[in-house]
Nucleic acid binder design. Structure first.
Lengths: 197, 197
DNA sequence: CCTAGCTTGTCACTCACTGACAATCGTGTC
DNA sequence: GACACGATTGTCAGTGAGTGACAAGCTAGG
């Protein structure tokens, strides 16, 4: 119940901060400015967000959980690569539906510290998705063949997830470059197809 | 000629800094400590390196150029994915030959700010490699078929490079986790094979 | 009412990093 | 040898993110 309030405050801060960021740029906005707008002390802001970057990309952890859930829901006999592609569709729709999604994505691409923070989040996604893919590899693999060493399977799973997230990232980058002119879904499809080769 | 001196000073600073980093940790080492050991003012350090992280991963830009050169040297009719794999071998040997490579890689994996700086460098590599892969795609593609739009080809090239660098990263991570027990080359091979699927 | 816990503001601090200015050093010229 | 020029450096002051400590206030339960 207290968690609800906390979550609401976080959202409020993130929203007001995003306004300022889009208006005058991320690096040009100081945390004290945000604090003033929100009506809090600068110190208290850091009781809701670990870093300034988190105010922009903080919500992405939950989205990662959604992707993991979507991956879990895919049919068990589907190939990992295809399952990953379909699971990532929740990101695509999330990006396309958000009205400020494009502007935010642009800022994200142009601001170095935000870009790296974003890559950091992708790493967390990777850790969340890898176990599912490992399970999939174990299931779809030759069951009687001496299972390749666990470590090797983990490596394969990580490589797949890393490649898939890389495809999403590349597609999103191109998407912002063309100003949202082409549907993101198609771009992701192309990227996935290119890697499968 | 003055450039030589500058390069030598950079190397000297990086070496002494690395000693301190490995000894007491990256975040626990302040730039003023480094300055004291090197015999410079803290201000001057930043005339040789843009950031503290650059003292660790500054030399990686040149390595990226080596990879690009290696990619250029691969036979023109080789598939892009295979060419990328072989080109990245220069990274593998560079990592395996370096005696402190493993310890540095471990520190790199454990220190968040270094990890993100590393991902940043990978982005630069990506931009360096993409043009070569684009050329390769244009060459190996169906020449008479209406060329897919340039943007689409760029997307495919970026996806391939991103996936390849992701494989290298994953392999290097596993490599540090097993303490260098398995040859890095094999790990990279496995990762590349897993994605080609 | 009063106590216990949580949230907040304030203050002081660290540290990476930057701009400005003056001092210094090396080099080439007359 | 004196001089001027450019590049490198030290010093100083400052910004801005982020942290620790402490005290004040709000809220809930006995």
């Amino acid at each position: 119940m207290r968690d609800v309030a906390r979550r609401a405050v976080r959202a409020e801060i993130a929203a007001k901060a995003m306004e300022l960021f889009l208006e005058q740029g991320f690096e040009e906005t100081t945390v004290n400015q945000i604090a003033a707008v929100v009506g809090m002390s600068g110190r208290s802001l850091f009781r809701y967000f670990d870093t300034k970057e988190d105010m922009v990309i903080g919500g992405l952890v939950e989205l990662g959980q959604d992707v993991a859930a979507a991956l879990e829901d895919r049919p068990a006999d589907e190939e990992p690569w295809s399952a990953l592609r379909h699971a990532l569709e929740v990101c695509v729709t999330s990006l396309e539906d958000d009205e400020v999604g494009l502007r935010r994505a642009k800022m994200l691409a142009e601001t170095p510290s935000l870009r790296t923070a974003m890559l950091d989040k992708q790493l967390r996604w990777q850790r969340m998705l890898v176990p599912h893919v490992e399970r999939r590899l174990r299931a779809s693999g030759q069951p009687e063949a001496a299972k390749t060493a666990k470590a090797a399977q983990s490596l394969r799973a990580r490589a797949l997830v890393s490649a898939a997230l890389g495809c999403l990232d590349v597609a999103a980058t191109v998407w912002t470059e063309v100003g949202g002119g082409r549907p993101l879904t198609n771009l992701v499809d192309d990227a996935f197809a290119a890697v499968r080769s």
